[in-house]
Design a protein around this nucleic acid. Structure first.
Lengths: 221, 221
DNA sequence: TTTTACATTTTTGAATGCAAAATTTGCGAT
DNA sequence: ATCGCAAATTTTGCATTCAAAAATGTAAAA
């Protein structure tokens, strides 16, 4: 198994929540499961720590990273900036074919909205945002976007949505598609920012904070 | 020596250009120099590869990453977005004391400009940009900014500058300070974007491309 | 003389082993 | 019964070792 594959599989385990935020990562068990020894596993954990998905505590092993409200806010803030940038760049570079593909994905998503199929809606939603980032034609940007969205994914695509919120989100997506078709970069950037700001409010209001009580024990001498 | 320290030291070696872009990274030598064994060294190299400073070629070792013109453009593009975002956030959150500190750093930098001390000028320049990012109060943003600037640092602070360019850069920095003092986030974002766009043009015109001919040999059967 | 096949050497990637550190366990004192 | 402390166990981090892959060198054939 290749190094990148090891990283990918552990990342998937973390994103699926199979190892919940804050939980210790059992080296021995993961080794057996992935059928590798500790050396490549530990290399992968260090990489994931650099990405922010894993927390390394010297001499105390590694844990799945836990996000505070502040972390979540910061991540959304950056995500807004990245998507806004991607939107602007995409408007300069996107091809007609790419726009058509996004329009199709949008139609699909709206259908899932009407069917009230949240899972499929989220899937389509994500595909659209990723397509915009891809259309920006900037692999560096795409990489950072992937790393930031990976960290907030659970929150972004798991939060329950009220019917009003959902409707607003769909309206915003109409505007997103419209701006893309008009290749209105500045407009698209604004809409994307607002869209993500609303999403962030949802997530934070839902109280997504992953800090369920510090497990640090204070010892007073 | 702690893991993070190993990563830091190798990063420094790469940023100093001690191992030039494209050059092979001699594992054995680095081990002796850092007085560590191959295991922690290789862990660090994997982390640096995830950061984009090192290229891992399966079964062929690691090389210091080489940047193409396209890479450089992409990095600057993202850097513009990150700094613009940082500028906007900084205007919302910066304290008077922080503004005063930046004003002082600015005055220093202008002095170095009049003294035609490019090294010190660059040092002050960098301190200002970093102070703005810090003032944004978003560690996630600061982390991404650090990673992106690390990759372009050699270009950004090594490119020779014409007197006109230099003068323009100083003027832009006046505007940056001014916008900060007025806490004009949108204005600051615009100035920072233009400032970096100019810097990018400089760097690309200087032909910084780090690709001195592919060393791939094509063999036709 | 050039090219190709093969053997040797070097280097990479991963498993194992070992010492240090932390956690857990067990026992005695209050 | 509970708290405190020390021994035992586990876990971590790194060095070493080992097998496989790639690079290098050599010699024979075209």
């Amino acid at each position: 198994m290749l190094h990148e594959e090891v990283v990918g599989r552990i990342r998937a385990i973390l994103l699926d929540g199979e190892i919940p935020p804050g939980a210790r990562i059992p080296e021995r068990e993961l080794c057996e499961r992935l059928e590798i020894s500790r050396t490549p596993l530990r290399e992968a954990l260090k990489v994931l720590a650099a990405e922010g998905l894993v927390q390394l505590l010297p001499h105390r092993g590694s844990r799945a990273a836990k996000l505070t409200d502040k972390d979540m806010r910061d991540l959304f803030e950056v995500c807004q900036g990245l998507e806004a940038l991607a939107g602007e760049l995409a408007c300069e570079r996107i091809t007609d074919a790419e726009i058509d593909a996004i329009a199709a994905a949008h139609a699909d998503m709206v259908r899932h909205f009407h069917e009230r199929d949240l899972i499929q809606y989220y899937r389509g939603n994500r595909a659209i945002h990723e397509a915009i980032v891809t259309a920006a034609g900037n692999p560096v940007l795409a990489g950072l976007y992937a790393s930031v969205t990976a960290r907030i994914r659970r929150a972004r695509y798991v939060t329950p949505m009220t019917p009003q919120r959902w409707e607003l989100a769909v309206k915003e997506h109409e505007a997103i598609l419209n701006a893309l078709q008009r290749r209105d970069g500045v407009g698209l950037a604004h809409i994307l920012r607002a869209h993500l700001r609303h999403k962030r409010e949802e997530v934070l209001q839902a109280g997504f904070a992953e800090t369920e009580g510090s497990d640090v024990t204070l010892r007073i001498a």
